[in-house]
């Protein structure tokens, strides 16, 4: 048994809507290992994205324990959690979220800028990642000049270029046709086989079938876990 990469214990999250407290997560217990490929499923409003954001250190839980490599994440400073996002975590979004003013190369280099990594290394790893997602011939194109599938490939290159331990994907195929979607998922499989833990939010059963573990979330609780 490999050591736990992430430990979540009794994680809750509430949002304040005016005077009303809206509970989103109500006690999540989850252990994630380095070799996991997890799909999180559930109806909308079940807290899938919120859970993903908490794992990605983008959001902080209202209560509970979150350890990443043994370190309690809710306690670290903005600077430190940003640094962890830059170096340990790669985000992939449904709407790709590339910076429209930057070309593919610059988009992929961005995490290195924030991680303060030497420009030479950044350039090398970025072009390597772009090559692996098959976008070498689009390297100096702006996002607006790319197709949806290509944009998502660029986004994946940005997420994996720095070789993070965890890749978090929020409906990564949601805006793509099923064929392109499958190609993207194959890329995830490939990066998983190279050792990255992948956590993917989806409501598509076919997409979820690429994962090794499927977690069903309902009303902020883990309802079922299938391996």
């Amino acid at each position: 048994m490999t050591p736990d990469l992430i430990i979540l214990a009794q994680i809750t999250k509430q949002y304040q809507m005016g005077a009303v407290q809206i509970p989103v997560l109500q006690g999540i217990d989850l252990r994630i290992h380095q070799n996991d490929f997890i799909a999180i499923m559930g109806p909308s409003g079940s807290g899938k994205s919120t859970l993903l954001h908490i794992i990605g250190c983008l959001d902080r839980p209202t209560s509970g324990t979150y350890l990443l490599e043994g370190k309690s994440m809710p306690d670290v400073s903005d600077k430190e959690s940003s640094r962890i996002r830059a170096t340990h975590i790669g985000f992939v979004f449904q709407k790709f979220n590339l910076i429209p003013t930057l070309n593919v190369m610059e988009n992929v280099e961005l995490p290195f800028l924030y991680a303060d990594i030497d420009v030479e290394i950044a350039k090398k790893q970025a072009s390597e990642a772009i090559h692996r997602v098959g976008l070498t011939d689009r390297i100096y194109h702006k996002p607006s000049e790319l197709s949806g599938g290509e944009m998502q490939r660029a986004a994946i290159a940005r997420a994996v270029a720095i070789r993070p331990k965890i890749i978090l994907a929020d409906e990564p195929t949601g805006n793509l046709d099923s064929k392109t979607g499958r190609e993207i998922l194959r890329l995830f499989e490939e990066f998983h086989s190279h050792g990255a833990a992948i956590i993917m939010v989806t409501h598509d059963k076919e997409v979820a079938s690429f994962a090794k573990t499927i977690i069903y979330l309902k009303d902020g609780k883990i309802e079922d876990k299938i391996s």
């Binding site: 979220n97 910076i99 995490p111």
Partner: peptide, 16 residues
């Protein structure tokens, strides 16, 4: 706003 969110997600600090 969206771009700011993306930049934060991929590692930008508030200072950045």
């Amino acid at each position: 706003t969206k771009e700011i969110g993306v930049r934060r997600a991929i590692g930008a600090t508030q200072q950045d």
